[in-house]
């Protein structure tokens, strides 16, 4: 070994001395130790970044946070006092009534805590996905080898005890020893997630077409908004479920917030799609009635929401924007309307 010269000499080895066990898998084994340090580095980076952002946020949001905490405290104490009084009153009225009320309260506590636990899990999974996505984006730029094993572990942890676990493990098993980090990410993205992508796509398309048709056919204009909102929430939950995120109210809420945020601050590529779909919409609606045009708009909006949700819930970054989805949604709505017209 002549590290002083800056390179390592070639070495001929005895084939029998090699670690014979699973030679194709083995090259990844030594690399596994290094990423641990990298992971902690990335984490440390995040912390420092947060610390840099921290003080200003505290300065701005101090009062607001205080307000939130105090409102929460007042509400919680008010509700618990009321509940205590309810319990007290029911027991003094009749022991049977007391038993009924206390069992109801117990039920409430249990179901509430399960809900809470679920939503926490969903939130944790969402942040896990975000972390995996960041890692994967970094790896996509990385040409070398040996950085991907941490990502693989994270992915396996994310899909543990889900129906997709087997497929993921199968794909990881098929990974070639010659792949570089970026190739591993692309390979997984293509092969481990393709089925989920397809399901998510079908789901988004179904909901988009449904909401489009519903809006087009609904007689009350004020009802439309509720309708679209309801379908969108259902779709968010389903898309999250497809990618292995536990569906819960808080997950749904966070997702909705992020989706709306992304839609509001859409990048240039999305703007282009929007413009395209708007043009498509206008050319199609010219031949349709105004109501059908509204339906089309609502359907396209739902489709875009679904795409954003997919992008947020997918553990690996979505490499290309699926333009054909928008088109097929528009086509689906127009077709459905065409079918429903003669029935009217």
């Amino acid at each position: 070994m002549s590290e002083a010269d800056g390179y390592r000499k070639p070495i001929l080895l005895d084939p029998k001395q090699l670690d014979a066990a699973a030679p194709t898998r083995s090259p990844e084994l030594p690399a596994r130790e290094f990423p641990l340090q990298q992971v902690s580095d990335v984490g440390a980076d995040d912390e420092t970044a947060d610390a840099g952002r921290g003080p200003s946020r505290k300065g701005r949001g101090g009062w607001r946070r205080l307000f939130g905490i105090s409102v929460g405290a007042v509400l919680v104490s008010g509700v618990s006092i009321e509940l205590y009084r309810l319990l007290d009153w029911s027991f003094t009225t009749h022991p049977a009534l007391g038993a009924v009320v206390s069992s109801l309260l117990l039920l409430l506590t249990i179901s509430g805590s399960v809900q809470l636990w679920r939503s926490f899990r969903g939130l944790r999974q969402l942040s896990q996905i975000e972390r995996i996505q960041t890692d994967a984006r970094a790896l996509l730029q990385h040409k070398g080898q040996g950085g991907a094993s941490a990502l693989l572990r994270e992915l396996q942890r994310h899909y543990r005890n889900t129906p997709e676990e087997q497929r993921l493990n199968e794909t990881i098993r098929l990974l070639d020893s010659a792949y570089s980090d970026s190739e591993i990410v692309r390979y997984l993205s293509h092969h481990a997630l393709s089925e989920q992508d397809e399901r998510a796509r079908r789901c988004v398309q179904r909901y988009a077409v449904e909401s489009g048709v519903l809006v087009a056919l609904s007689p009350w204009a004020s009802f439309d908004m509720l309708l679209v909102g309801w379908r969108n929430l259902r779709m968010l939950r389903e898309v999250a479920g497809i990618y292995g995120v536990a569906p819960g109210a808080s997950t749904q809420w966070i997702l909705l917030k992020r989706v709306l945020h992304n839609l509001a601050f859409a990048g240039l590529s999305e703007m282009a799609i929007d413009a395209g779909s708007a043009a498509l919409g206008s050319s199609l609606t010219a031949t349709l009635s105004a109501r059908a045009g509204q339906g089309l708009g609502a359907g396209l909006f739902t489709a875009r929401t679904g795409l954003q949700a997919q992008r947020l819930c997918r553990p690996l970054p979505l490499d290309q924007v699926d333009q054909s989805l928008i088109k097929s949604v528009a086509k689906g709505i127009v077709e459905r309307l065409g079918q429903s017209k003669p029935a009217e």
């Binding site: 090699l18 030679p23 030594p30 010659a178």
Partner: peptide, 17 residues
């Protein structure tokens, strides 16, 4: 070739077989 690895001077070295 097949990827393999060997222990050389206490270090793990990727090599070919």
């Amino acid at each position: 070739t097949q990827a393999a690895e060997a222990q050389v001077d206490g270090q793990t070295l990727s090599c070919l077989r």
